[in-house]
Design a protein around this nucleic acid. Structure first.
Length: 899
DNA sequence: AATCCGACAGTTG
DNA sequence: CAACTGTCGGATT
């Protein structure tokens, strides 16, 4: 049952409030089945022996009380050991005016008028299997354990200088085994609680010198079926298997301090460890260098659900709802689930696999409970979901060990829940010896054959998911560049692709009818330049389609600085005719007939970057790039000071404007020296210093910078207009209806953070400031996260604009001047203020509107009614013009050949 | 010779 | 510290 349905149910409960039925209606609202509620009413499900109390295993303890006693009663009830044995998630008391409730697991409390319960319905969502994840409080155990382990790790590394000689593999396995032992002794995997830590404490010397031999011995014991000949303190340890203790490793040397820390680790309560995120925490603490590399990041559970739900979970739940009354179909659904394969080709420490595993087991529990309601089970039932259905590839060896381990922990925890929830017929087989493990391969997923890890047999239902690493072209290391080359060899311009593209391309080749993929990515592969480079290879001229998308959401991590990234989730499948595609936004779900590579509902179109303008428009170029580390730049104060001190310097100083200065109305200046002026200019000490600093910076800079050492008094590129110029900011806020652009005098040096039209006809300003152009930029342009990121090649050169008459140009020019005049009326205001969508002056808005209409009349006489309509029209025009253009190119080439 | 990008980066309130 | 919004150098074409 989904959240909105539950909310509706609770609202209905309030509207038809019935005192006698209240608590049963409430449970029903969260999807507890009718039969369970009947049995609860009859009494055989009610575990309480106290009159007037209802105790429903793992769900709740409910009591009706007299007014004024609510808080004291709930205090007593939450401490009632008899009741707590049955793990009620909530304790609820009410006098049917006020309702007080407590969440036993999180400690959260609720105290509300009972008729307002619908406003707080989310409080009881754990009944429907929906946990609220508040990272700060709930990860306490994980964080504590992680920090302790980091301490142990640090000391072991210091005391064992040769520990990395094998690349660290030995150490990784060692740590993984220790974690298993800590967890096993605190849960009932090991027969005696605390036996690992206790035995270690009793049978090793305090100076730590024999801890390693003790552990070597113990690991051997854990890998041996028959331990009857072992020393008595080892004999109680069980046979673990599962490959965890199979290979012989050499435990590192311990010191007194290291022994102390390992014992402290053991004393922590490891039973509360949450395998969802524990792996990545341990990983990050153990190796901080990896925090932002190689696809290993803190990933939060809600974000993982954003992938899992649309990819397969929603569909499985739909099936469940559809066949709720048909036990045979429900058994078939369990069979289907037992055959699924889940494959994360960049699995890190296994977060996605673990969440997917847990979700499938939760669903299985719900199905079994429903089957039992329809046909009571008289024999015991075991889970059908196996760890061997889970596949992963991970480059980092430690992460890959953690993934395997975390899956075992998740299995153990879910077994417990399975037995708890299905207490009258659900059973779990003993976890030891470990039988199944996830198929996690250590290696480079961009180079490995995925079928070697996750073989696909005929008809296999496989879901590929995950969050592969992102790296823009400048962040890629040598190996990653080589990875891209190996995959995209023969394709053009692949070097500018983000590293994450490898997974999309490789995954698209792996897809079959029953194989689907949902990956998280940086949103930039669906914007601007990269769209044209990647998506034709992935979509394979219509054989593959995007069947769901979650565009543009922030994925923050807990690393220092809290640097985030804007992501999109993209679901791919082999094209299925008339498939209902879904776009998930913050607010709603859009039913789309098609999702294009820009992740919008619309026709499949990919706009390729162009070097020349498609329409009859003048050449636009980048602004002047300094590449000076700021040494050729001056603030207003610096400029005034130097001009006061050296009046001669004024001729070498120009006003300079980038996007920031233009939009926010800031003043900035730069040194602008012609070669033949250099000698005189260097007479001024201030200028000499600046030029020398710039030279030094360029000498130490990259390849490009070093070519500019000999002309350190100048910008890397220098362009100047004769009479006037239009500035078009490169990056600007997406909140604005129009990117602020404007005319500047011929002396102003426009920075590289803006583009320029030098000496333009004024009507061009009208074209690029129009609504039509803004719609185009928004749809096909690059972005910085979600900001507009204007570019000549993608936004301007591709823009379809019809050929117009001189008269039309004059018309447009009049409207251009009106816009400029309106701006003049508010000359005290900055562009940022004028173009703030909430504060834009009415006159300016109207002038823009009239300009928009004039531009739109160039396309057609009938006015456009919406941006969607504008865009559709533009796409059609674009296709027409591109076809014409390519035809023209072809004939040109032919003629050349003939000649 | 000219970009187009950023598991971002700097400012504000 | 969350919300807001645009720099600057360079690998690539």
């Amino acid at each position: 049952m989904n959240t909105s349905q539950i909310e509706k149910n609770v609202i209905a409960l309030v509207e038809n409030f019935n005192k006698e039925e209240f608590v049963f209606d409430l449970l029903k609202a969260y999807g507890i089945s009718k039969t369970s509620i009947t049995r609860l009413k009859k009494g055989d499900f009610n575990l309480s022996k106290v009159e007037g109390e209802i105790l429903y295993k793992s769900k709740m303890l409910f009591k009706e009380v007299e007014s004024g006693t609510l808080l004291t009663v709930i205090d007593d009830l939450t401490k009632e050991p008899e009741a707590l044995k049955h793990n009620p998630r909530f304790v609820i008391v009410t006098d049917y005016k006020t309702l007080v409730a407590k969440d036993i697991r999180t400690g959260a409390a609720l105290d509300i008028p009972i008729l307002e319960i619908h406003k707080h319905f989310s409080f009881f969502l754990p009944w429907a299997g929906q946990e609220k994840y508040s990272q700060k409080n709930e990860n306490y155990a994980d964080r504590k354990a992680s920090y302790k382990m980091a301490k142990l790790y640090d000391i072991l590394v210091t005391e064992n200088p040769n520990i990395y000689d094998d690349g660290g593999h030995n150490l990784n396995i060692f740590l993984s085994r220790l974690l298993f032992c800590f967890f096993a002794e605190d849960t009932d995997i090991f027969p005696i609680e605390g036996m690992f830590t206790d035995t270690l404490a009793q049978h090793t010397k305090e100076d730590g010198s024999d801890v390693n031999t003790f552990l070597d011995r113990l690991f051997k014991v854990l890998n041996t079926k028959d331990n009857s000949k072992e020393a008595s303190h080892f004999r109680e340890f069980p046979y673990v298997n599962g490959g965890l203790f199979r290979d012989t490793i050499v435990s590192p040397q311990f010191t007194r301090e290291a022994r102390k820390i390992i014992l402290e680790c053991g004393d922590l309560d490891w039973s509360e460890i949450n395998p969802d995120i524990f792996g990545s925490m341990i990983q990050a603490v153990v190796n901080p260098a990896y925090r932002s590399g190689l696809g290993m990041h803190y990933t939060s559970v809600p974000n993982i659900m954003k992938v899992i739900e649309p990819l397969f979970l929603n569909e499985l739940y739909d099936e469940f709802e559809k066949h709720k009354e048909n036990p045979k179909k429900l058994r078939q659904l369990i069979y289907r689930i037992s055959k699924l394969k889940i494959f994360d080709p960049a699995c890190g420490s296994g977060n996605f696999l673990i969440i997917a595993y847990k979700e499938l087991r939760k669903l299985e529990i719900k199905i079994w409970r429903q089957i039992n309601d329809l046909e009571p089970q008289y024999s015991f039932v075991f889970t059908e979901v196996k760890l061997s259905q889970f596949y992963g590839i991970e480059l980092d060896d430690f992460a890959h060990e953690m993934a395997i381990l975390s899956l075992w922990l998740a299995e153990h925890q879910m077994n417990k829940i399975f037995v708890d929830e299905l207490f009258d017929f659900g059973r779990a087989k003993p976890i030891l010896p470990l039988k199944e493990a996830g198929h996690i391969t250590q290696g480079n997923a961009t180079r490995l054959n995925w079928e070697d890890t996750c073989p696909k047999n005929d008809g296999d239902e496989i879901y590929i998911l995950g969050n592969p690493p992102y790296a823009g072209q400048k962040k890629q290391d040598k190996i990653q560049k080589e990875d891209l080359k190996l995959l995209f060899k023969g394709k053009t311009n692949y070097k500018t692709l983000d590293y994450v593209s490898c997974w999309f391309y490789k995954g698209s080749n792996y897809l079959e009818g029953n194989i689907k993929m949902g990956l998280v990515s940086t949103n930039s592969i669906c914007q601007g330049n990269q769209v044209g480079l990647l998506w034709p290879s992935v979509l394979k001229t219509g054989n593959v389609e995007i069947f769901f998308a979650v565009p543009n959401f922030k994925w923050t991590n807990n690393a220092k600085g809290n640097a985030g990234v804007t992501c999109s989730i993209i679901g791919l499948q082999r094209t299925i005719k008339n498939f209902q595609k879904l776009i998930y936004t913050d607010r709603n779900v859009i039913k789309a007939s098609n999702i294009n590579a820009y992740l919008t509902d619309g026709i499949d179109i990919i706009v390729q970057k162009r070097m020349t303008a498609l329409s009859a428009l003048p050449k636009m170029v980048s602004g002047n790039m300094a590449l000076d580390d700021g040494h050729l730049m001056l603030t207003e104060k610096e400029k005034n000071d130097i001009v006061n001190q050296y009046p001669d310097s004024e001729v070498y100083i120009r006003e300079t404007t980038g996007a920031n200065e233009f939009i926010k109305g800031l003043k900035r200046y730069c040194l602008w020296i012609e070669d033949d002026e250099l000698e005189d200019a260097l007479e001024i000490p201030f200028i000499k210093n600046r030029v020398e600093s710039c030279k030094k910076f360029r000498e130490n800079g990259g390849e490009v910078a070093r070519t500019l050492v000999d002309r350190a008094h100048q910008f890397r590129y220098r362009h100047q207009p004769v009479n006037s110029q239009i500035i078009i900011p490169l990056t600007s806020s997406e909140r604005r209806d129009y990117i602020p652009m404007g005319f500047l005098g011929e002396k102003v040096v426009i920075q590289q953070s803006a583009q320029v039209l030098y000496d333009p006809e004024p009507f061009v300003f009208g074209v690029i400031t129009s609504r039509m152009h803004m719609v185009w930029i928004d749809a096909v342009g690059g972005k910085l996260e979600t900001r507009y990121s204007y570019s000549v090649g993608i936004c301007y050169n591709t823009f379809p604009f019809p050929e117009i008459t001189q008269k039309q140009k004059e018309q447009i020019t009049l409207h251009v001047f009106e816009v400029l005049e309106e701006r003049e009326k508010y000359s005290d205001k900055t562009m940022a203020q004028l173009y703030d969508p909430d504060k834009m002056p009415k006159g300016l808005k109207e002038a823009h509107h009239q300009l928009d209409l004039a531009i739109e009349r160039c396309y057609r006489l009938k006015p456009f009614e919406s941006d969607t309509e504008r865009l559709e029209y533009l796409f059609k025009e674009y296709e027409k013009m591109i076809n014409k253009d390519t035809l023209l190119e072809k004939t040109k080439k032919k003629r050349k050949k003939k000649a």
